[in-house]
């Protein structure tokens, strides 16, 4: 279980996250929603100890997360990566095993096996010798998913995995989520998509610097909450669930 208590982060004098508290249960996929600049990526960085906290505690299974980073897998946004880097698909996934392997050691058989399994799971095994530059956006995303699986983490953080990916990749990602869920992993996923794909999440968190709402889809996606989070008037009724691929961009416009 991940416990976040009173978490605050600021850059200089600008508040990025304000007194955020929530818990995530094992075996659940939680979607993290909110407008641009709501502090979603900052929250991830704060959970991982990559930015200094003003206050607050982040605990995993009762102990500070920063003391057990090997149990956390982080899947960064695709735009953060230099895709021209000379590395093959297989070696990129192998990076998920670096921390577990430890200093001065070669990757062992088990790591090789985990990487093979992870690549097969995301349907990328046949591309293992390709340089990452030669992949499509969806395939690149799947390489990072494989890296997270190979890491054997218990808590997985995904930063906008659905950004600019093809339908096939989207399906593979959701299948993977279901599988990880069955293994009692804890997943937190940043998403911009407010459409029917939200059915795939067990719980939603709506963020805009502070936590606006959390709970089931019906509890979170009320007009009142959305207006408060996105600071716009918007009417989701009468049939919000049938709106086809209603995205964050629509709300801004």
């Amino acid at each position: 279980m991940l416990e976040v208590c009173n978490l605050s982060v600021s850059y200089r004098h600008t508040t990025a996250i304000n007194r955020l508290s929530f818990t995530l249960q094992s075996g659940q996929v939680t979607g993290l929603l909110g407008p641009n600049g709501a502090g979603k990526s900052t929250l991830f960085k704060a959970l991982l100890g990559l930015v200094p906290l003003d206050e607050g505690i982040v605990k995993w299974a009762g102990k500070p997360v920063t003391e057990q980073l090997n149990k956390v897998a982080y899947v960064p946004q695709r735009s953060q990566i230099d895709w021209d880097y000379p590395v093959t698909v297989k070696r990129a996934v192998m990076m998920g095993r670096v921390a577990a392997t430890g200093w001065f050691r070669q990757h062992n058989r088990r790591s090789q096996e985990l990487v093979r399994h992870a690549l097969k799971q995301v349907g990328m095994w046949q591309y293992r010798q390709r340089q990452i530059r030669e992949l499509s956006g969806g395939q690149q995303q799947r390489v990072f998913l494989a890296r997270a699986i190979a890491q054997e983490a218990d808590l997985l953080l995904f930063d906008e995995p659905f950004n600019n990916v093809d339908r096939q990749t989207e399906e593979i990602i959701f299948e993977l989520f279901a599988e990880l869920k069955a293994q009692q992993k804890t997943l937190l996923v940043i998403s911009h998509d407010l459409s029917e794909t939200l059915e795939n999440y067990d719980r939603l968190l709506l963020l805009n610097k502070k936590l606006i709402a959390s709970g089931s889809k019906a509890e979170v996606l009320t007009n009142e909450n959305i207006n408060q989070a996105y600071d716009r008037y918007c009417n989701l009724t009468p049939q919000p669930l049938t709106i086809n691929r209603f995205t964050h961009a629509d709300l801004v416009n």
């Binding site: 991982l48 990559l50 980073l69 090997n70 956390v72 982080y74 960064p76 953060q80 990566i81 230099d82 880097y85 590395v87 070696r91 990129a92 192998m94 990076m95 670096v98 921390a99 392997t101 200093w103 001065f104 990757h107 890296r147 890491q151």
Partner: peptide, 22 residues
């Protein structure tokens, strides 16, 4: 040679490497 895999990870994905505790 000794730090090859760590340096490769760090130069490819600094944030990911930091998140792993390197």
């Amino acid at each position: 040679k000794l730090f090859y895999k760590e340096l490769e990870f760090y130069t490819f994905d600094p944030l990911g490497a930091k998140a792993c505790g390197l």
